[in-house]
Simulated assay, not measured.
Amino acid sequence: MTELTEEQRLIQESARTFTREVVRPLADKLDPVKGEIPRELIEQMAELGYFGILIPEEYGGLGLGALEYCLVAEELARGWMSVASMIARGNALIGSLKAMTPEQKSVYLPRMAQGDFLGAFSLSEPDAGSDVANISCRAKRVGDEWEITGNKYWCTFADGADFIMVFARTGAEVDPKARHKGISAFMVEKPRGQLPQGVSGSPIPKIGYFGWTTWELALDKCRVPAANLIGEEGKGFYLATAGLETARAHTAARSIGLAQAGLDDAIAYSKERRQFGQQIASFQAIRFKIASMATEIEAARALMYSVCSKIDSGVRCDKEASMVKLFASEMSERVTSEALQVLGGGGYTTLNQVERHWRDARLTKIFEGTSEIQMRIISDHLLGRG
């Protein structure tokens, strides 16, 4: 496994303490009632620099790498995966950094690093999920503005964000042989707590990932200044995919954090719960479950560190990023399910937090590319079919 530096260990320990003292207690209180992540918590995260981990120092960020980003995400996910996901709302544009103009960088990035300009990502549509190139939402140039019309799906934090990154088709016709071309990216700025003008929406009912709302959006001639086009017109597909390696490592980190939280809860319960006159931790069935869970977590963590090191070294690793996302998310569901089993009937109640870890772990197999999509990417690389 990659050896962490002293600085990285301090970052990890700081995030672990913050999670233990602040995030976990809030999650235990708010998740059962589907409460919103409080603004006060977001402000505390901003003070710790979590929204600027990947943003260069010249723009007020920490200028760190994917490994530090994932170290923080893993620890936050041990408390509440939604909070671990929140840090992407500030580091979200890093994949688009090279495409931004100097003016856009100077305006947006310092505010983002301070947690004062957080975003939502609107790429998916009712008919465009894994098939991202199937986007049908359209943007039409009208004078000094763009007018966006269409439907979007799975846009988390659309109401609480300060902007929504919307991907829409600007090309006149879809080329069947190059459907990914003609898609553009727009930064739709908006008042915090509201949807943008020209946008209506309905919350999507979820079985987990509470703390914020995930939206279905309808854009009806939503106006955006021409200056808010990010990157070149028609090249938005490349912006959407530019940061996938880091995004998938981030999902792996969240998966590992959830699994670790499940293991922690299972160990604690096994020492407290007594049956047949002794701790259930003394039973081989329980001990072996815990040993297997811990081993799987450590294997996923080692792979995640390796992938992050490649990303930070500038080495292309889309295959390995897919591997860690696949392995860690599948592992997380197994481990949190086993943790629930250790708690028995109590695990199947909302009186214990392991059910939250289990519900949220299930989502990691779906977002940032399903497990099946990851297997397709990996096999394409191995078989030379990419």
Results as ranks from 00 to 15, higher is better:
324 V>H: 06
324 V>L: 05
325 K>P: 00
325 K>N: 06
325 K>T: 01
326 L>A: 04
326 L>M: 06
326 L>C: 06
328 A>F: 02
328 A>S: 11
329 S>Y: 05
330 E>D: 04
330 E>I: 08
331 M>H: 06
331 M>C: 10
331 M>D: 02
331 M>G: 12
332 S>T: 03
332 S>D: 01
333 E>Y: 04
333 E>W: 01
333 E>H: 07
334 R>T: 12
335 V>G: 05
335 V>S: 04
335 V>F: 03
335 V>P: 11
336 T>Q: 12
336 T>E: 10
336 T>W: 03
338 E>S: 09
338 E>M: 08
339 A>Y: 07
339 A>L: 07
339 A>S: 09
340 L>A: 08
340 L>I: 06
340 L>C: 10
340 L>T: 14
340 L>N: 08
342 V>K: 00
342 V>G: 07
342 V>R: 00
343 L>N: 13
343 L>D: 14
343 L>T: 15
344 G>V: 09
344 G>K: 00
344 G>N: 00
345 G>P: 01
345 G>Y: 03
345 G>H: 00
346 G>R: 04
346 G>H: 05
347 G>A: 02
347 G>Q: 01
347 G>C: 07
348 Y>H: 11
348 Y>D: 02
348 Y>K: 08
348 Y>A: 08
349 T>W: 10
349 T>C: 10
350 T>I: 08
350 T>W: 03
350 T>G: 01
350 T>P: 00
350 T>V: 07
350 T>E: 03
350 T>D: 06
351 L>T: 13
351 L>M: 14
351 L>Q: 14
351 L>A: 15
351 L>W: 09
352 N>M: 04
352 N>E: 09
352 N>V: 08
353 Q>Y: 14
353 Q>H: 12
354 V>H: 00
355 E>I: 15
357 H>T: 15
357 H>A: 13
357 H>P: 02
358 W>G: 00
359 R>V: 14
359 R>Q: 15
359 R>N: 15
359 R>C: 13
360 D>W: 10
361 A>C: 08
361 A>F: 10
361 A>L: 08
361 A>N: 09
361 A>W: 04
362 R>Q: 14
362 R>G: 14
362 R>E: 09
362 R>C: 11
363 L>Q: 06
363 L>D: 07
364 T>P: 00
365 K>I: 09
365 K>N: 12
366 I>G: 10
366 I>P: 11
366 I>S: 07
366 I>R: 06
366 I>L: 12
367 F>C: 03
367 F>T: 03
368 E>H: 02
369 G>W: 00
369 G>R: 02
370 T>D: 13
370 T>I: 04
370 T>Q: 09
371 S>K: 15
371 S>C: 15
373 I>L: 05
373 I>W: 02
373 I>M: 08
374 Q>A: 14
375 M>A: 14
375 M>N: 13
375 M>H: 14
375 M>R: 12
